[in-house]
Deep mutational scan, measured.
Amino acid sequence: MQIFVKTLTGKTITSEVEPSDTIENVKAKIQDKEGIPPDQQRLIFAGKQLEDGRTLSDYNIQKESTLHLVLR
């Protein structure tokens, strides 16, 4: 499924993921596309910071959901 990751600069990254993918996994995909190390990434969805060990389905993230990427 496709999800969108919006950066603070307003850029939107499209990523191909599975509901069973972990947040860590998603951060790795963002690193592949943007070159941002996962340890600098914080992903936010519905006002919550997403934890690395959890999966997209844990957070009820569905296709075409938009996550927000904040850098630390």
Rank of each mutant, 00 (worst) to 15 (best):
M1I: 11
M1Y: 14
M1R: 02
M1T: 03
M1H: 05
Q2V: 15
Q2L: 15
Q2Y: 13
Q2T: 14
I3W: 00
I3H: 02
I3A: 00
I3Q: 00
F4L: 06
F4H: 09
F4A: 04
V5D: 01
V5N: 01
V5E: 01
K6Y: 08
K6F: 08
K6G: 03
K6M: 10
K6W: 06
T7K: 04
T7W: 14
T7L: 15
L8G: 11
L8R: 12
L8V: 13
T9I: 07
G10R: 03
G10T: 02
G10N: 05
K11G: 06
K11S: 07
K11V: 09
T12Y: 10
T12H: 06
T12N: 05
T12I: 15
T12F: 09
I13H: 04
I13M: 07
T14C: 09
S15C: 15
S15I: 15
E16I: 14
E16F: 13
E16W: 15
E16M: 13
V17T: 03
V17K: 01
E18W: 13
E18L: 14
E18P: 03
E18S: 14
E18C: 11
E18N: 13
P19F: 07
P19R: 06
P19N: 06
S20H: 12
S20N: 11
D21Q: 05
T22W: 05
T22Q: 04
T22N: 04
T22V: 04
I23Y: 00
I23A: 02
E24N: 08
E24W: 15
E24T: 08
N25K: 14
N25I: 14
V26M: 05
V26R: 01
V26A: 01
V26K: 00
K27E: 01
K27A: 03
K27I: 08
K27Q: 03
K27C: 02
A28M: 14
A28Y: 12
A28P: 00
K29W: 13
K29Q: 11
K29L: 11
K29A: 07
K29E: 04
I30E: 01
I30T: 02
I30N: 01
I30K: 00
Q31S: 12
Q31M: 14
D32W: 09
D32P: 03
D32R: 12
K33A: 13
K33H: 09
K33N: 06
K33R: 09
K33C: 07
K33P: 04
E34V: 15
E34W: 15
E34F: 15
G35Q: 05
G35A: 05
G35M: 05
G35S: 06
I36Q: 03
I36V: 07
I36A: 04
P37Y: 05
P37S: 09
P37L: 07
P38Q: 14
P38L: 15
D39Q: 11
D39A: 11
D39S: 13
D39L: 08
D39I: 09
Q40P: 02
Q40C: 10
Q40V: 11
Q41N: 03
Q41T: 10
Q41L: 12
Q41I: 14
Q41C: 08
R42H: 13
R42W: 13
R42G: 08
L43I: 06
L43Q: 00
L43W: 01
I44W: 15
I44V: 10
I44M: 12
F45I: 03
F45N: 02
F45K: 02
A46W: 08
A46Q: 14
A46T: 05
A46L: 12
A46F: 09
G47L: 03
G47A: 04
G47D: 06
K48V: 14
K48E: 12
Q49D: 15
Q49C: 12
Q49H: 11
L50M: 08
E51I: 08
E51H: 08
E51D: 09
D52S: 07
D52F: 03
D52G: 05
G53S: 11
G53H: 14
G53Q: 12
G53P: 06
R54M: 12
R54T: 05
R54E: 04
R54Q: 09
R54W: 10
T55D: 02
T55L: 09
T55A: 05
T55C: 04
L56Q: 00
S57F: 09
S57R: 12
S57T: 09
D58R: 01
D58M: 05
D58W: 12
D58I: 03
Y59N: 01
Y59I: 02
Y59G: 00
Y59K: 00
N60W: 04
I61T: 00
I61F: 02
Q62F: 11
Q62C: 05
Q62W: 07
K63I: 06
K63V: 07
K63P: 15
E64D: 14
E64I: 02
E64L: 12
S65M: 11
S65H: 07
T66A: 04
T66N: 04
T66K: 04
T66R: 05
T66D: 03
L67D: 00
L67A: 00
H68F: 14
H68A: 05
H68R: 08
L69K: 00
L69A: 02
L69V: 05
V70W: 10
L71A: 07
L71C: 07
L71P: 08
R72M: 14
R72E: 12
R72P: 10
